[in-house]
């Protein structure tokens, strides 16, 4: 009986390890980001700077950013269903995410890009 229990325990450990491994792999995957900007105004430049800063910090070397100026290529605005500018779209890895704004709210960017999980609501309440 006791032997059986031990084997079960080791099974659980194995699955946890597998999950963590898989998670690590996802993090290893390259992020493909498209940033749609309307011209090179202050908002656009700010957005580009912020993205670079955040991703250099959290995913150094593991992201690929393409900046698309919809003034130059208006067709992309239609194809990408762009309404607001700047808009950052995470094409890969799935799921697809859409962020708008100058990316100055770092926490929201990280949340939106699934780089951090949502803060536990219970913790917040305890702090209050």
């Amino acid at each position: 009986m006791s032997k059986n229990e031990e084997t079960e325990k080791s099974d659980v450990k194995d699955s946890t390890a597998a999950f963590e491994e898989a998670l690590a792999k996802t993090k290893d995957k390259k992020y493909v980001l498209h940033l749609y900007v309307a011209g090179m105004g202050p908002k656009s430049i700010q957005a580009i700077d912020n993205i670079k800063r955040i991703f250099d910090e959290y995913l150094p070397g593991k992201y690929q950013l393409e900046v698309i100026d919809i003034y130059q290529n208006p067709v992309f605005a239609r194809e990408g269903q762009i309404v607001a500018a700047p808009t950052l779209i995470k094409e890969l890895p799935p799921p697809l995410r859409k962020l708008i704004g100058s990316m100055s709210d770092t926490e929201r960017v990280l949340l939106g890009m699934d780089l951090i999980s949502k803060p536990n609501e219970n913790d917040e309440k305890q702090q209050e």
Partner: peptide
Amino acid sequence: VDHVHIDKSEIEETGEYDLEGLFIRLGLA
């Protein structure tokens, strides 16, 4: 006819923005 897909749940706001995308699409159309 240009359908502009808008879903609040998909959009995360991270600072200053404008609706230039809409204007450009409209202009293009």
